[in-house]
Simulated scan of single mutants.
Amino acid sequence: MPPPVQIDGCDTFSKLFRQNCKKFGDRTAIREKDFGIWEEFSWLDYYACARRVGCSLMALGYRKGDVAAIISEDNKEWVFADLGIQCIGATTHGLYPTLQEKQVAYQLNDSGAKVLFVEDEEQLDKYLGVEDQLDHLEKVIVFDMEGLRSFQHDKVIGWEEFLALSDAKIEELSVEFERRIDGGDPEDIATLIYTSGTTGAPKGAAMSHRFSWPSRIITPNCRLGRMTKF
Results as ranks from 00 to 15, higher is better:
102 K>V: 12
142 V>R: 00
125 D>K: 13
154 D>I: 07
204 G>Q: 08
90 A>C: 14
98 T>Q: 06
130 V>F: 00
113 A>I: 03
195 T>K: 09
147 G>W: 01
170 I>F: 10
133 Q>T: 07
206 A>D: 08
143 F>D: 00
195 T>C: 09
168 A>Y: 04
178 E>Q: 12
199 T>L: 11
194 Y>P: 05
112 G>A: 05
184 G>L: 05
120 D>V: 02
116 L>V: 03
169 K>C: 10
140 V>F: 00
164 A>I: 03
199 T>I: 10
217 I>W: 11
116 L>T: 00
102 K>Y: 13
212 S>G: 13
173 L>N: 01
178 E>D: 15
93 H>T: 02
119 E>D: 14
113 A>Y: 03
194 Y>M: 11
177 F>I: 11
118 V>L: 06
111 S>R: 03
188 D>Y: 08
195 T>P: 06
129 G>D: 13
94 G>Y: 04
151 F>Y: 15
180 R>N: 09
214 P>W: 07
96 Y>M: 12
157 I>L: 14
161 E>W: 09
123 Q>T: 13
121 E>K: 15
213 W>E: 05
122 E>S: 13
145 M>K: 06
94 G>F: 04
102 K>Q: 14
183 G>W: 08
139 K>W: 04
212 S>H: 15
160 E>H: 14
204 G>V: 06
171 E>P: 02
191 T>W: 06
126 K>I: 07
135 D>H: 13
150 S>Y: 01
136 H>D: 09
98 T>A: 11
144 D>Y: 08
111 S>Q: 09
119 E>R: 09
217 I>Q: 14
139 K>P: 02
127 Y>I: 08
96 Y>Q: 08
217 I>R: 14
118 V>Q: 01
103 Q>N: 14
131 E>W: 01
175 V>K: 10
141 I>P: 00
116 L>P: 00
180 R>L: 12
100 Q>I: 10
125 D>M: 11
192 L>Q: 01
218 I>H: 13
155 K>M: 05
101 E>K: 12
